[in-house]
Design a protein around this nucleic acid. Structure first.
Lengths: 185, 185
DNA sequence: AATCCGTCTGACCGATCGGTCAGACCCTGA
DNA sequence: TCAGGGTCTGACCGATCGGTCAGACGGATT
């Protein structure tokens, strides 16, 4: 019955997931059809839908690890204020954005739409708390504007620089974050 | 024959253009169908395609003024270097982004795709020169990374804050730009 | 009255989308 | 040898996309 052995069967599931990650990162979620993914894998569209209930399930499985890390960052942010919140948010989000560059690239411009889906129910509130942390929990409009510039700028930059090594991207992003954020009064 | 009189006929052309601007800014270019625009105007989809050759022509006419200002900024940038280039690019682009917030919002995430279209032939090169100017014409990777964070952050922030008055958004953006850019060595 | 033309529309087109389904194929255990 | 189940696929579905076209309508010109 149960055999803990490694399966010799072709791991189509994983191949589809990997191909979808690659295609989504280039042409976005809406801009990539199941046909595209199937072609990249070398199977039929029906096979993709055999391994994944629907297109949204594919996206959810792809985003799950990134969302888990985002939730962990949100937890670390609880109870912090001012400069401490800015530092934790900056270091944590740069880390996350660099590590999950592909995942960030795939929701370029589709972020508001995809947030509606049940799989991303919490992400909306988390990103609001993240902006507040970047603003040092200040409610001054200029602080919130600076926070959004930093947040969106990091995301877009990570999505753009897919190929350069982490060791080069991370410190440069951290430097610009520390410069750009409005100092707490 | 020729009468310079004001036409009493309904200016459907302008109405379609205005409705398209509003819809595109919310749901993006690809995400807005000609049917959507027609419904917002209160006419048929065929009427939209009577006044505009195709969907791309609608986009071109909508983007033309923003692109003209972008080209003017590019011309002012020619021959500048270092801190001067940073200042001109910063002030000029913030101005442009604030004024044409709707136009920027509509190409959220679709920027790379839409650049392929012939109407935006030069924009690709202009935006590369703009990034170089933000970097103070330095080729250090950290300077270019900071430049992209600023450029993308401004664009996304303007697209997000559609409703707040210009007088509030502009100075806050200018402040974060001047802070964030890497000082020229 | 007849004509003409700018404006507008419903019906239709081929393509593509996400998704379904019956059945083919093959390996395994009885 | 046969039955069962996991894997895979071609054919198909309804919906929607951008775009086309023949013709209806109405006001101005002759």
């Amino acid at each position: 019955m149960l055999e803990g052995m490694a399966r010799a069967v072709p791991e189509t599931h994983g191949e589809i997931l990997a191909a979808a990650a690659r295609r989504f990162a280039v042409t976005g979620y809406k801009g990539t059809s199941l046909q595209d993914i199937a072609r990249a894998v070398g199977c039929s569209k029906a096979t993709v839908l055999y391994h994944f209930a629907n297109k949204e399930a594919l996206l959810s499985e792809l985003m799950a690890p990134a969302i888990a890390v985002l939730e962990a960052l949100d937890a670390r942010l609880a109870g912090t204020t001012g400069a401490e919140a800015q530092e934790i948010a900056g270091e944590g989000f740069v880390d996350l954005a660099v590590r999950f560059r592909r995942q960030i690239a795939l929701l370029r411009g589709e972020f508001p739409d995809l947030l509606q889906q049940p799989a991303f129910a919490h992400v909306q509130q988390i990103s609001e708390r993240l902006i507040a942390a970047f603003a040092g929990n200040s409610d001054r409009p200029s602080a919130r504007i600076a926070a959004l510039v930093v947040l969106a700028g990091i995301a877009e930059t990570c999505a753009e620089f897919i190929d350069i090594p982490d060791e080069e991207l991370r410190p440069a992003l951290l430097a610009v974050v520390r410069r750009a954020l409005e100092p707490v009064t």
